[in-house]
Write a protein that binds this DNA or RNA. Structure first.
Lengths: 190, 190
DNA sequence: ACAGAACGCGGAGACCTTCTCCGTTTTTGC
DNA sequence: GCAAAAACGGAGAAGGTCTCCGCGTTCTGT
């Protein structure tokens, strides 16, 4: 069901060009990049952009599916290399770092773990949640994660940690620090 | 140093009107409310708005100083009513709830705990950090908070928790939940 | 290979927002 | 009062989003 009907040649061409231009523009100017400008870069009219991608979200998603899928694959690789508890933290670190380093990715993944509207079951959302679920279930089975914590909670908190880290000057150094604070808790180890 | 020179009568009048209109507009449309629209509501020209408040941040700050100061005062009230550890959590709950309930407040307080630019020592930032510091120091003295956690970290994590909660459908219920996850940690109590 | 239908293109333009500039009006100090 | 100083206000430039529809391209059937 990827494509009920094959796309017309010119449509496919433009679609591809737009994706490339979008990736560049988002990397350069963040998620707020001008859409008309992306169309111009791609050498198509703005109508074409809006036909293929009705909303900014849709374009952002399309431009980053690859990365999100890579992140999901990493989850499985890490799961094979390490014990469940460790694997979860390692993956969360990579995920959070990705959200900081790849401009626009945080916004995309944020809306991927939202309930709101809820009609929107996006590809990125599903992919991310799937990966998170596998790691969380394994960690649960191993007793390496509180039982009352759901996969979606973990993903949302990761988003929160990314946001918190972003506020610091050297986000890089803050990520592992804040992530460990969240996993171990703010209370002193008594 | 509140005001080196007394404001001209009309200036003061307009300043006040703008503040009132801004509070309404931000409450109604969130931090993204149209500035020209605020000017219109206040019955002044847009030039006047921009003269008094050069940036959206400045207006947001001016519109919410009152609330932020109230939040800071609450910190001290709570500190008198409860033991340090409890007081800190109680205040963080109120703070986080405020960020969710009062539209635009989260954005304002977010930039208040940023390092970036750093030239900006805003009133709200100072007020908030002051309140946070007092509670954190008390908690430290009592051994109710990890020694390696600084006041600014706590504020940033509160911002992160607010962000994470916002992603859920019933933010209200999520705040205490996520806040307790952060304080107690995701690891199971072994 | 060709015609006609179907589909997609593109960019002008309507509408919105931010922010500046400067002629005009209000206030103030004397 | 009056002149200087201070502040006003709103037109308009710049730049963004998104739609609409006449026109060009591609596909399909014969």
């Amino acid at each position: 069901m990827t494509q009920v009907k094959p796309m017309r040649a010119d449509a496919r061409r433009n679609y591809e060009r737009l994706l490339k231009a979008a990736a560049e523009a988002f990397a350069e100017h963040g998620e707020g990049a001008s859409l008309d400008d992306i169309a111009k870069r791609a050498g198509v009219g703005s109508g074409t952009l809006y036909r293929h991608f009705p909303t900014r979200q849709a374009l952002l998603e399309a431009a980053y599916v690859g990365r999100v899928e890579a992140l999901a694959r990493r989850a499985d690789v890490i799961a094979q290399e390490r014990p469940p508890g460790e694997a979860l933290w390692a993956w969360l670190t990579e995920l959070t770092e990705g959200m900081i380093q790849v401009r626009g990715l945080k916004a995309l993944l944020g809306s991927a773990v939202t309930d709101a509207g809820s009609a929107a079951a996006t590809v990125c959302g599903t992919t991310l949640k799937g990966a998170g679920e596998r790691l969380v279930h394994a960690a649960h089975a191993e007793g390496a994660l509180r039982k009352d914590v759901e996969p979606i909670d973990v993903l949302r908190l990761a988003h929160g940690v990314a946001t918190a880290s972003e506020l610091a000057d050297d986000e890089g150094a803050c990520i592992p620090r804040y992530l460990s604070l969240v996993t171990e808790g703010l209370l002193p180890t008594t």
